[in-house]
């Protein structure tokens, strides 16, 4: 494989990495929180809906990843490949870790809420804060990605 092909490979990977890593993060995060929600169902008599609802919080990272991929989607060239790969990888990693850890925060919220339903709002706050960082990573990937040569595919 010559250098040009390798660069194009990285460029295409960079286009899809935000979606792939965001989705992996969401899978792990939702699985953690979902298992906690299902476990909590064994120990509570009411409020099932909101427990399961909280477990879906780490889904948003996949959506952010899809939007970034749509923004990056273009005919990859040697000039655009390094930028696409660098930004795609970094925003993907940010989305991956935020989704996984948001799943843990959501699981903790579920575990607390089943014993003290009155603190539901407060218990979800850490998960919301983690979401905030994912949003920062998403927005700045869109802004910085605007400077990558080639522009979005029409």
């Amino acid at each position: 494989m010559n250098t040009e092909s390798f660069l194009l490979l990285l460029g295409w990977a960079g286009v899809y990495l935000p979606t792939a890593l965001g989705a992996i993060g969401s899978i792990v995060g939702c699985a953690r929180a979902g298992q906690a929600a299902v476990g909590a169902l064994l120990d509570v008599e009411t409020g099932y809906g909101r427990l399961v609802g909280v477990s879906a919080l780490p889904s948003s990272q996949t959506i952010y990843g899809i939007v970034v991929t749509m923004q990056f989607n273009r005919t990859v060239a040697v000039e655009s490949a390094p930028g696409l790969f660098s930004l795609g990888l970094l925003v993907g990693l940010a989305l991956l870790s935020s989704a996984m850890l948001q799943g843990t925060c959501a699981a903790a919220a579920i575990n607390t809420t089943k014993t003290k339903p009155e603190v539901f709002g407060l218990s979800v706050a850490p998960a919301a804060i983690v979401e905030g960082f994912a949003v920062f990573a998403f927005i700045f990937a869109m802004i910085v990605g605007g400077g990558i040569p080639g522009g979005p595919a029409s």
């Binding site: 792990v28 953690r32 906690a36 299902v38 476990g39 014993t115």
Partner: peptide
């Protein structure tokens, strides 16, 4: 992820 369900199913 395996312990999330069990731990959440145990009372406080």
């Amino acid at each position: 992820t395996d312990y999330y369900m069990l731990i959440a199913s145990l009372p406080f």
